[in-house]
């Protein structure tokens, strides 16, 4: 099959003054794409061709190519990870596109995710949010027996649903406000539903939200684009959980 690609090319990293205005969308054509190829394999072929022509290949982040590491981060036709629900860009296959399709590929767009080059963005803001409190303070060796603290299955499942977050940033990319509340909410909700998470409950949510705000993410307006774009289909329930937890912690503090 044949596809026409429009890809964001940017050679220098964005800064807080210059968000990459020197970048631009560039058009490429590929005419021998197989429907069984993954989307990233299609980009691999493009890069091989570009290299052969002496043009620098398109930089894009990818690693595990099986939908779990969260590295790939492509906005495909205005949707994070492309048109399929519950799928990362690396799991997307060309059979999801019609022959002759035009495909727009852009990096995640958010002030908190500066573009480093082409389609590669810096998601360090997510790491800093986690560093602010998305953990249980337990040193190695200090744990009690794993079965000493039963966790009702329903609670464990709820925690798990939130914990499946792969930190890819699709929620921020999809949100009209570039808000990170699904991400941060998932961290809060994960620990909220486990007995181990109770001791640091208030501190955790206060620090997480403070850091998230400081990083310059937008605010949630309850449009739920994040949930629809999340490749792991994390429910917006986690945002309600975080809102409640934050207010509770504020009142107590």
């Amino acid at each position: 099959m044949k596809v026409v690609l429009h890809i964001w090319r940017q050679s220098r990293p964005s800064t807080s003054q210059d968000f990459g205005q020197d970048g631009k969308m560039v058009r490429y054509e590929l005419d021998d794409v197989s429907a069984d190829m993954s989307f990233l394999e299609m980009l691999d072929i493009l890069n091989e061709r570009l290299t052969a022509k002496g043009e620098e290949p398109v930089a894009f982040d990818h690693d595990c190519r099986e939908g779990i590491c969260g590295t790939c981060s492509l906005m495909i036709n205005g949707r994070p990870h492309g048109p399929e629900r519950g799928t990362t860009a690396c799991q997307l296959h060309m059979r999801s596109f019609q022959d002759g399709s035009e495909i727009w590929i852009e990096p995640w767009r958010a002030k908190s995710f500066p573009v480093l080059r082409d389609l590669v963005v810096d998601r360090g803001a997510f790491d800093r949010v986690v560093q602010a409190g998305a953990f249980i303070s337990v040193n190695t060796g200090a744990a009690v027996d794993a079965n000493a603290m039963p966790v009702p299955k329903a609670d464990a499942d709820k925690a798990f649903d939130a914990a499946t977050c792969i930190g890819c940033g699709a929620c921020v990319a999809a949100c009209k406000n570039a808000s990170a509340m699904l991400f941060a909410g998932a961290k809060v909700s994960h620990f909220l539903h486990l007995p181990q998470g109770q001791a640091e409950r208030d501190r955790r949510v206060l620090n997480l939200v403070e850091t998230m705000d400081k990083e310059g993410f937008g605010n949630c307006t309850n449009q739920y684009e994040c949930e629809a774009a999340c490749p792991k289909e994390i429910p917006v329930r986690v945002i309600a959980d975080m809102n409640r937890e934050y207010n509770r912690a504020r009142i107590k503090s």
Binding site: F19, M75, R79, R109, K111, K176, G218, T221, Q223, E225
Partner: peptide, 29 residues
């Protein structure tokens, strides 16, 4: 205030934006 913060959170808009499920009402608040 919130709207301004939201605008600032995305300095460059998408060249080809799309919406998955957000209602018209929610997008025009």
């Amino acid at each position: 205030r919130l709207a301004r913060e939201n605008r600032n959170a995305r300095p460059i808009a998408y060249a080809r934006p799309d919406t998955i499920q957000a209602s018209l009402a929610s997008r025009s608040m």
